[in-house]
Design a protein around this nucleic acid. Structure first.
Lengths: 334, 334
DNA sequence: CAGAGGAATTTTATCGATATACTCGGCGCT
DNA sequence: AGCGCCGAGTATATCGATAAAATTCCTCTG
């Protein structure tokens, strides 16, 4: 691989002059400049970024670390990328497989040092593990789990979003709304927060909640949701609405409902969470809580850039507002 | 940031000994080892990967460069990741926005040097531009465009997939099948190859093709597809089948069909390409050509690893076979 | 007991680029 | 003429880790 010294020799100048020409730092005489540029062209030289990174202590690269490259995270990443690029940096994605061990590794000082900053979407890490991480690198956590106070953190208004969706279905006549994929345990904070929203909507409407309507979905895939929904139907459970914890889950549920001959929204109303691109187009259109990718991306990148620019301030914990997008899968959307 | 020298001082040994302990290279006496490890713990030392990379000339990292993080690419990336990790390397994703300039930048010598290998999913680059790239770094190109011979390349059997889907609809009675998102121009190789498959299926069945049924879709989003489909319907074009160039396009089309009161598959049969995770669950289930993510991922990673391990051989151009997955959106699937 | 052999550890050189300090020739000003 | 200053370019040190060579200190052998 051709290096700066080769260019210098070719042009008959010192290495430092080549560097100065290429980085336009110190003024260089025009004839020298031309000779250097000619040598660069001739040899096809390009800077070795690893060496530059070592010397500069910067990489101009930010990592977005996500559990998987799918769906929600893919859409979020596409929002984050332009914002990072606008700041003159590169964005790369890394993946953790929602595995606590791999998330810890991503947070190891070693990996962090490669990047100027990290946006970490936590899924498997709990408070205790996160508390152990010690680093001065800029980090912003994304996601619905609780995190130690000293981290900057952006999350969604889960409870309020779930409340909106549920209230909307109640308003249009639903009385027995499944909370599909929701949960009661601390290990699934997001699913639990959304369940709370589902409950509060009932209370606000003066209705009782039936805990039996909270049905967990193993791994939050459409397939699991489909299977779970089939079981619920087979069991003969009475329900006239489904609040699905994500759109992916809603899709699985929809499939099962249609297959069982239940009409959406006539027999059963259905609402999801995330408002994925596809949700608008899946007949009859899935009513969904918009996860506000743009807002989340902007907030997170803002916090990160604040740190990278050195004007840090105390850690913030932002909760991004969400809104309900009504479509044909609920009665208000027809 | 604490460095190796700090650990060495703390443990009262030389830097090299610390390195030897951590990398288990040269045997180190047990008492020394223990002291070094203690110092590492005490100071919370972690290796500076940038420095190691510079010295070693390797990064143990592979980049998958894609046009966007969405949909097809997200699913492909999730297949590639475990394969790369099994080889003891990290996978990172970078994004080009399907922009030729950014794709070239990804191929610049500078960026290549950061990675031990690159999987580049080309969308914007043409033969001419690619021909200019000179590098000895391991690269495998993915995607449906033509590429210079000296690159390793993995693509799908586009023409054959399109033929399968179209033939299937013909077999079940379709006679006027839209080729939605297909094309005639060299700039859209994938869309053109798939159009050819659509044509051949007609010929094989002894049917004429009507070029007016080839309807391009601007940017291959569901939204464009939806709008295009609405126009086609409004125009009063007669058709009883839709072969959509991707599942994303199929979804947009489905939405428009349903909205216009056309029944799928009774009035119109519909088939897509890619077999995304969601396609199975979107009622009535979208018949689709499986893009064989797994096969593509394995082939591409195989070629890349062969290069990274130095046992190169001549460049290969693999065409991964595809198969049709029949679901409710075509008459064979009911 | 001298010298070979070997394990443990240290010294030195290097990866490639760049910040900093320094040299050198020329020019203006008094 | 002499001083200082300036632009142009160079020499040196450094970022942090590691491969390779050199050293130290034993132990074992004839």
């Amino acid at each position: 691989m051709v290096k700066m010294a080769d260019v210098a020799r070719e042009a008959g100048v010192s290495v430092m002059t080549v560097s100065n020409v290429l980085n336009e730092r110190i003024p260089v005489g025009e004839p020298t400049r031309a000779r250097v540029m000619a040598a660069v062209e001739a040899l096809g030289y390009e800077v070795n970024l690893t060496a530059r990174n070592l010397r500069a202590g910067r990489t101009d690269t930010v990592a977005l670390v996500v559990p998987s490259f799918h769906d929600y995270f893919g859409e979020l990443a596409d929002e984050v990328a332009p914002l990072i690029e606008a700041g003159g940096r590169h964005l790369v994605l890394e993946r953790t497989s929602a595995n606590a061990e791999q998330e810890m590794e991503a947070l190891s000082v070693a990996r962090l040092q490669i990047y100027d900053g990290v946006l970490l979407s936590i899924a498997g890490l709990d408070l205790e593990l996160l508390g152990r991480v010690r680093t001065t690198k800029p980090i912003v956590l994304l996601g619905e789990r609780d995190v130690p106070d000293h981290f900057n953190h952006v999350r969604l208004a889960n409870e309020s979003g779930a409340r909106l969706a549920t209230a909307h279905m109640i308003e249009h006549g639903a009385r027995r709304i499944l909370a599909l994929g929701c949960a009661f345990d601390a290990a699934h904070v997001m699913a639990t927060d959304r369940r709370v929203g589902w409950e509060r909507a009932h209370h606000a409407a003066g209705l009782e909640v039936d805990p039996a309507l909270v049905v967990p979905v193993g791994d939050y895939t459409s397939l699991s949701a489909y299977e779970t929904m089939r079981e619920v139907i087979a069991r003969g459970t009475a329900f006239d609405g489904v609040f699905a914890v994500t759109d992916i889950v809603a899709l699985g549920a929809l499939s099962a409902l249609v297959e069982s001959g239940l009409r959406v929204p006539v027999d059963v109303q259905l609402a999801g969470f995330d408002n994925l691109d596809m949700s608008r187009f899946i007949p009859p259109g899935i009513t969904s809580v918009d996860a506000n990718h743009k807002g989340v991306a902007e907030a997170a990148v803002g916090l990160l850039q604040r740190q990278m620019e050195g004007r840090a301030g105390p850690a913030e914990h932002l909760v991004e507002p969400v809104r309900l997008v009504v479509r044909g899968s609920t009665r208000g959307g027809a």
